[in-house]
Amino acid sequence: MRRQRSPVFYSLAAFFGLFVLFLYGPMITIFMLSLQGPDGALTFPVRSFGFYWLGQVFQEQRVGNFIEPFQRSLLLGALVMVLSVGCAVMASLAFRRRFKGSILIFYLTISSLIVPSILISLGIGVVFQVLGVQTNWFTSGLGAHLTWALPIAFLIMIGVFNRFNPAYEEAARDLGASGFATFGQIVLPLIAPSVVGVGLLCFTLSYDEFTRTSLISGQYNTLPLEIFGMTTNVTSPALYAVGTLTTLFSFSIILIAFIAYSLYSRRQRQ
């Protein structure tokens, strides 16, 4: 049944178009402004075309460093990815059955998403202070990132298992496979595309996280914190160039996640 497209369709489509412009427009402006020659400035018009400012990002900076925080963020992102996916897959496996306290644990997980983020930052900071331990990006920072990435990974994995057919598992078990063998040889290969996708999404969540880490990253900044520091100091398009580069980096991670997911699941269907 294909209905005649009504005026409502066209007005909603136009509204949707404007919304997408609202989402991406600002990003496009800084892309344009970062592709300028040495005479470029922070505002339009674009004075000349060039890659000068993108190159500047990798030079020694007076006001901030880009390379080391980037490396830290990569490492932290990888840690968050592995831990979140590991915990979330295990927990979502358990959640396929009701058990005593499951609702409580579910609410604990959800509350991690909706608690005002400043409480996470302050709370972890206070704990470290009381214990007399230095805050650090790979301890307190890691914990803060997990409170954000893990609940999202968990919710997505719950959705994945909702659509998962338990018949394969039962068959394996009927054939005498142990719990571990069933998981390793049947369940994991089947959910692998989603696991890869979720992992990469957790990585970008950590890579871009700012609010929960802002007060507890310790002496060495992660990349978003370094960029935040730059916003007050840097008055050249180098700031936009950093923004363009990290946004392109995030985009490529999302793209890889998407491609990996679709390739993987296509291979499975064959």
């Binding site: 600002p26 990003m27 402006t29 800084i30 999404l201 970008t204 969540l205 871009d208 700012f210 609010t211 978003p224 960029i227 935040f228 916003t231 700031l239 936009y240 923004g243 990290t246 946004t247 995030s250 985009f251 991670i253 999302i254």
Partner: peptide, 11 residues
């Protein structure tokens, strides 16, 4: 999935 800071600077 991209940086909040950059999204704000973009304005």
């Amino acid at each position: 999935w991209t940086s909040n800071i950059i999204r704000m600077i973009s304005w």
